[in-house]
């Protein structure tokens, strides 16, 4: 008896408010569909695609510090040139910032919001810039720097930079371009190499190649080679 009463009550409910119920259900279904499309679109964007507008906006943000054409900037910190840089190198560095293998309190937060697609897009954009280098290091050191760059210092077990970075310091794939890089930035990197890069011994990265070189170079050699490459176009 209770069952039939309940059934009767339900039927009455539906008869009275049926249209309203239908409206609500239809709306929910529609919204659910829309949300599904939106969210799956977003995840698709993360994996494969990034909008032109988003890249342009992010580029402008990078340029705030790295210079209007990615030529670098001598602020409180020397901020490196990204223009003309090898895409693979840029991608590796951004990943290293994210994973704190290259800890940098400014670049780690910058990098960790970037999707892989955005990283690739930015790296490609910067590779195509070609502004003049910022004023380089002292030219009187450049001649000595050229010797070190091309010949290394075999007696001190310092490898020739040109062997991996190329004769014009343009780099290749994961080997960075050095031509036109900021003089104070190069000095800082070579001096601090072991303290800044490859900081996760459980996950050694490409930075280990440079560790013995940076270690073997003495200060005047670092300044000379930095002066030389910073003046290259």
């Amino acid at each position: 008896m209770e069952l039939s009463l309940r059934r009767a009550q339900t039927v009455t409910l539906i008869k009275r408010h049926g249209r309203w119920i239908l409206k609500v259900v239809a709306q929910c279904a529609l919204q659910l569909t829309v949300l599904t499309i939106v969210f799956s679109a977003t995840s698709r964007a993360n994996a494969t695609d990034v909008s032109k507008g988003a890249v342009e906006a992010k580029l402008a943000y990078c340029q705030d510090c790295h210079g209007p054409s990615g030529q670098g900037y001598r602020g409180f910190y020397p901020i490196p040139r990204l223009a003309g840089q090898q895409t693979r190198y840029l991608e590796n560095q951004l990943q290293a910032f994210v994973e704190r293998r290259r800890p940098n309190p400014i670049m780690s937060p910058v990098a960790h919001v970037l999707s892989p697609a955005m990283i690739t897009a930015l790296a490609t954009k910067f590779r195509d810039f070609n502004p003049k280098p910022l004023p380089g290091g002292p030219k009187e050191l450049a001649a000595k720097g050229e010797r070190i760059f091309e010949d290394g210092v075999p007696e001190d077990n310092v490898a020739a930079c040109a062997a991996c970075h190329g004769p014009q310091a343009l780099g290749h794939e994961e080997v960075p371009r050095l031509a036109g890089q900021l003089y104070p930035y190069i000095i800082k990197e070579l001096t601090n190499w072991g303290k800044e890069r490859g900081q996760n011994p459980a996950h050694p990265d490409t930075s280990f190649i440079m560790a013995p070189v940076a270690h073997s170079l003495i200060k005047p050699q670092i300044e000379a080679v930095a002066a030389y490459v910073s003046n290259l176009k």
Binding site: A159, A162, A163, C164, H165, G166, P167, L170, G171, H172, E173, V175, F208, I209, M210, P212, V213
Partner: peptide, 15 residues
């Protein structure tokens, strides 16, 4: 090994 690779397996840099 800086140029020839960590166990001298070779390396493809600029050259």
């Amino acid at each position: 090994e800086v140029c020839h690779g960590p166990s001298a397996q070779g390396f493809v840099g600029y050259y």
